[in-house]
Amino acid sequence: MEPDPSQPQDQPRPQPQSQPEPPSVGLGTGAVARRLGVSPTTLRSWERRYAIGPDRREAGRHRLWSPADIARLELMCRLTAQGAPPAEAARVARGAPTDGPAAPAAPTPGGPRELRLGDVRPECRGLARAAVRLDAPAVEDLLASVLADLGPVTAWEEVIAPTLHAVGRKWASAGERYVEVEHMLSWYVSAALHRIRPASQPLPAPPVLLACTPGELHSLPMEALAAALGERALPVRMFGAALPADALCEAVRRTGPRAVVLWAQSRTTADAALARAVAGIEWGPRGARGHSALLLAGPGWGAGAAAPPARAERLFGLRSGLAVIESVVAPRAQGTAAGRAAPASCGS
């Protein structure tokens, strides 16, 4: 029988539409690398060589690492830091449960060689882990990231200097067995600081002269200061480690700096006689002679050191030291500069 067109017909019931799958919850490769203190290249190498990549892949999307994936990577980091070959560490990590408590045999990454850092930023822990593993690409990537994200002052005070101090403490307790970590980390910190480009138009002011005392080889704090001054458009002349006394005095006469910052890491290199000589140098044409402000930086000038000149001023910490230098070199710019801060524990 033909259906009557005047009567309502049964309409097809709408079919339930399939709901789109919720987006995957996870972290990108770069974020995981920063969290673990390895380079993204290392993660991709582990995935290619040892099949320790993310469980799920979606077409057209970047890798997303789930909490279970990251737990396996953390275990692999711990095992390799303890000396296990990467292939064996990956085999154990792939077979380890990821939904239960951490295995007691695998404590904090770094194992017996871990650095004791205390309450620090996550970036500091990542840098320390990478340094302990001698993972140079990761160290380089992490330093570039924190310097770009935080700027040289915060990166130095809250990430770089605490890690360097922890390495130094570990080296003091472990002897020459640990010096390779300090050397590698110091080299990459120096290289990262040197890559910071100064402001394109420095202030029209006499420069700040930065130098270490003769015999002083620890120049990293001065390199951080040079990077921070350059970023703030303050003109700098950096002379680095172990500048001979005669060369320092000649440089002061030739450049006529507004300030001279003299670094000494220890009392054995804190040369009070040299400080007095620098403080007494006059420069400029006759009738318009000038003096440089002498700023003493570093723990070597502390208690027990020979008395420096009365005109010298101590610097304590990178941030507060910058405020002092700015007040000397560019006093009119203090409206845009940070005021004097409390001495920082990990600066100059």
Rank of each mutant, 00 (worst) to 15 (best):
P16D: 10
R258E: 07
A136L: 03
E250D: 15
T108G: 02
V92K: 00
G335T: 05
R63K: 13
L248G: 01
V260W: 04
W171I: 04
E216P: 01
R13T: 14
W171Y: 03
V146C: 10
A242R: 08
L193G: 02
S186G: 13
G284S: 14
Q265S: 08
A342G: 09
A272Q: 04
S266T: 11
L73Y: 09
L209V: 14
A87S: 12
Q334E: 11
I196M: 08
A51Y: 12
A172G: 04
E21A: 15
I52T: 00
G280R: 07
R121F: 01
R319T: 03
G284Y: 00
E250K: 06
E88T: 15
E74A: 04
P343M: 02
D271L: 05
R35P: 03
V278F: 11
L209P: 05
R311Q: 14
C77K: 03
L318C: 04
A251I: 07
P204C: 04
G151V: 06
G304R: 12
P22M: 07
R169F: 00
T98G: 02
G126Y: 09
P14M: 05
G168F: 05
A251D: 10
P5W: 07
S219M: 09
L64D: 05
A342E: 08
P162I: 01
Y50V: 00
A226R: 11
P112G: 08
W46M: 00
P85M: 06
A247H: 13
L262F: 01
P12Y: 12
L234G: 00
T29A: 10
P214Q: 02
W187A: 14
P85I: 00
R289G: 11
R49L: 08
P109F: 02
I281E: 07
W171K: 01
D135E: 15
R340H: 12
S348L: 15
A228N: 04
C124K: 09
T41Y: 01
G111Y: 08
R258C: 05
R332M: 12
I281T: 02
G280D: 15
R195P: 06
R332K: 14
E313S: 06
A103T: 09
T269H: 06
R48M: 01
R61V: 01
L220Q: 03
A31Y: 11
W156H: 13
G335R: 14
C346M: 13
L164E: 05
L43Q: 02
E176M: 15
I325D: 05
I325K: 04
S200K: 15
E157R: 11
